[in-house]
């Protein structure tokens, strides 16, 4: 090696630049690979879903699938509404009054995925165990939800969440 006088600093500069460029370039090249692992446009494009509520009698519940998740739709009785209202939100783990969680008192619409680790709580069918608060019971780790879908007992940190929906008319809703 016969280094010319000024070479070392120039060399260091070039090596550093090349190293930095190489690292950044490799990172940039990895980005598309990572992006491609995310949901495709077909997964993301969830068309809104219309649900006809008229066949559901008071006290009954149905489950529809929207964006791959079960949506619990429950036609609540007067007694159930009263029970849901008869709670002081301040005493709850995730304080919310029942009226914040519904558009119409008779219809409770929540995403049926337990906020603990994602199991599907029971309580949609008449024969299901509905938990100590008469709503839903998640048997995975024992979370009890009330008739407003709020967490009352057990490990789940949050109430069952309410999806985006609107009433198109008296008895039809549109999810999304």
């Amino acid at each position: 090696m016969t280094d010319r006088p000024k070479q070392p600093s120039r060399r260091n500069f070039l090596f550093l630049t090349a190293g930095a460029m190489g690292t950044v370039g490799a990172g940039m090249a990895a980005l598309p690979l990572i992006r491609a692992m995310g949901p495709s446009r077909t997964e993301r494009a969830a068309a809104p879903l219309e649900v006809d509520l008229s066949p559901i009698a008071p006290g009954q519940a149905i489950t529809v699938f929207w964006r791959g998740k079960p949506i619990f739709i429950r036609h609540r009785t007067e007694e159930e509404i009263a029970r849901a209202r008869d709670v002081d939100p301040a005493t709850l783990r995730d304080p919310q009054s029942d009226s914040e969680r519904v558009h119409k008192d008779a219809w409770l619409i929540v995403i049926g995925v337990c906020t603990h680790f994602g199991c599907i709580p029971r309580g949609q069918k008449p024969a299901d165990r509905k938990g100590d608060y008469g709503g839903w019971f998640c048997s995975c780790h024992g979370s009890h939800f009330d008739i407003s879908g709020r967490i009352r007992k057990g490990p789940a940190p949050k109430n069952l969440s309410v999806p985006d929906y609107v009433f198109i008319d008296e008895d039809r809703i549109k999810l999304g």
């Binding site: 598309p32 690979l33 992006r35 491609a36 692992m37 995310g38 495709s40 446009r41 077909t42």
Partner: peptide, 27 residues
């Protein structure tokens, strides 16, 4: 991760990679 190995859907899944997966055409 996005390809479907059955004769019914393989062709369409490749086309979906090209059109629907983010940067899928590039990969």
């Amino acid at each position: 991760l996005h390809y479907t190995a059955n004769t019914e859907n393989a062709f369409a899944s490749v086309e979906a990679i090209m059109r629907d997966v983010d940067q899928g055409w590039m990969i």
